[in-house]
Design a protein around this nucleic acid. Structure first.
Length: 422
RNA sequence: GCGGCUGUGGCGAAGUCGGUUAACGCACCGGAUUGUGGCUCCGGCACUCGUGGGUUCGAAUCCCAUCAGUCGCCCCA
């Protein structure tokens, strides 16, 4: 039997895992600066949480959830996204009562969606996301977008584009929805079957349909921006002017519709323009979810957040040929000749590691040449040769692999010799 | 759920109008260089050609099935 990794998952091996660590570390540092604190929630939740939170009409809930019964007969679902779980935790732990408001939280970890994998789309993928719950102020919307854009700037990614829209509040959405139905209903027979259904369930999504995108009714379909009431419009204007004042460029796309039901008001995506990135261009997405906390049984508490995929960031970095500054070079490699020397070498290695150096030695009884090759391949700054002669003399031979220079020093001087030369 | 492409040593791959010993490169091991790496040269190890069946004197090559990977559609991070 050959065991194989499940479809749509990946092993992250040494060489690659360092890139993940680097990115995660940058994300944490960024959150610290913006004063977001980490929250860790389980990787699975009651199925009902996602059905209610994400929305019954979404593709995620209808066909992409990993759902199973546990031994107690409960329906469990592997989390397909982060927000619903964070909001559940916020409500359950009564974080609305904590002194610090709004609650500014971040998370990172695997999400699961049952889909056909392709470039930039895995069944298990890792998201980093933030949520700011407990206030509705354009400044926090802008903060979330600024953090998201800052994140990509950390890595020197080019051609990153912020696209924003407003989905309006409840009354704006209702007016827009009615207008959409009036617009499409007379000719709905000319549209695809999905769109016919969308007319009933969520007419906004018709605008997002790729199949019918050329239909003449699409071009002059009512724009949400024309149906925003005064409050919603003013809110959106403030968001835009604050983005302007921070010098964050953006594009308004009235067709930007997010895929999850809980979004309203400010919505945004970060896209990557340019070649070499497959069919996927969305790096991250987010928006405001006023009303979600109440839906999940909490108090009235507006929120906003965003999530990004680490996989897609890595793809984007690769597409642009950006290397992360990752060092995993050895300080020293201990070359051993003979059994007597080996005992001594084990001690030397141990002490150097205690002194804080990154040190390796040979465990395969290779010949000297092979050991030097290994040292070279591992990028060791120094090799420390220990043979019988050295053991007898109480010394070792320290070689600077860069200059080729060698010197003989006593056991106690090894650390200092290395340090003074570094 | 639907469609395209791919599957040959540890890795990357040539070979695919069927024909004897399945190239080449990288890696690895040994030697030139008895205790000193990177460069060079010489030699060596290693492939059930994804799996199962079929056609044929003969199959990596053709046919069927199956599994896996990958890319795309839908949708999304």
């Amino acid at each position: 039997m050959n065991y194989q990794i499940p479809k749509g998952t990946q092993d992250i091996l040494p060489g690659e895992s360092e890139r993940w660590q680097y990115i995660e570390q940058k994300a944490r540092q960024l959150c610290e600066r913006y004063n977001y604190r980490e929250i860790r929630t389980p990787m699975f939740e009651q199925t009902e949480l996602f059905a209610r939170g994400v929305g019954d009409t979404t593709d995620i809930v209808q066909k992409e959830m990993y759902t199973f019964k546990d031994h107690g007969g409960r329906s469990i679902t592997l989390r397909p996204e982060g927000t619903a779980a964070v909001v559940r935790s916020y409500v359950e732990n009564k974080m609305h009562g904590w002194a610090e408001q709004p609650q500014k939280l971040y998370y990172t970890g695997p999400m699961f969606r049952y889909e056909r994998p392709q470039s930039g789309r895995m069944r298990q993928f890792v998201q980093f996301g933030i949520e700011a719950i407990g206030c509705e102020d354009p400044a926090i919307d802008v903060e979330v977008m600024a953090l998201a854009m800052d994140f990509y700037r950390e890595f020197g990614l080019n051609n990153v584009k912020l696209v924003i829209n407003s989905l309006g509040d409840q009354s704006s959405r209702k007016a827009h929805r009615d207008a959409l139905v009036r617009h499409f209903e007379p000719s709905i027979d000319e549209f695809c079957s999905d769109c016919k259904e969308r007319l009933e369930t969520n007419p906004l999504r018709i605008l997002d349909c790729k199949q019918d995108s050329d239909h003449p009714l699409m071009a002059d379909a009512p724009s949400i921006l024309d149906y925003l009431n005064d409050e919603s419009r003013e809110y959106f204007e403030t968001v835009k002017s604050q983005l302007d004042s921070l010098g964050i460029p953006y594009e308004v796309d009235p067709g930007l519709v997010r895929g999850l039901d809980y979004y309203n008001s400010t919505a945004f995506e970060i896209m990557l323009e340019g070649e070499g990135f497959g069919a996927i261009s969305t790096l991250s997405g987010g928006g405001r979810y006023n009303g979600l906390v109440e839906d999940i049984g909490g108090p009235q508490a507006p929120g906003i957040g965003f999530a990004l995929s680490i996989e897609r960031l890595l793809m984007a970095l690769d597409a642009q040929g950006i290397e992360l500054p990752i060092e995993h070079k050895l300080d020293a490699y201990v070359v051993v000749m003979g059994d007597v020397a080996k005992q001594k070498a084990v001690q030397v290695v141990h002490h150097l590691r205690k002194d804080g150096y990154r040190v390796e030695m040979d465990y395969l009884n290779k010949k000297m040449k092979g050991q030097f090759k290994a040292a070279d391949r591992l990028g060791a700054s120094y090799t420390i040769v220990i043979g019988e002669d050295e053991v007898n003399a109480g010394t070792v031979n320290v070689k600077n692999m860069h200059s080729g220079e060698q010197k003989t020093v006593g056991f106690e001087e090894i650390s200092n010799t290395i340090e003074s030369s570094l």
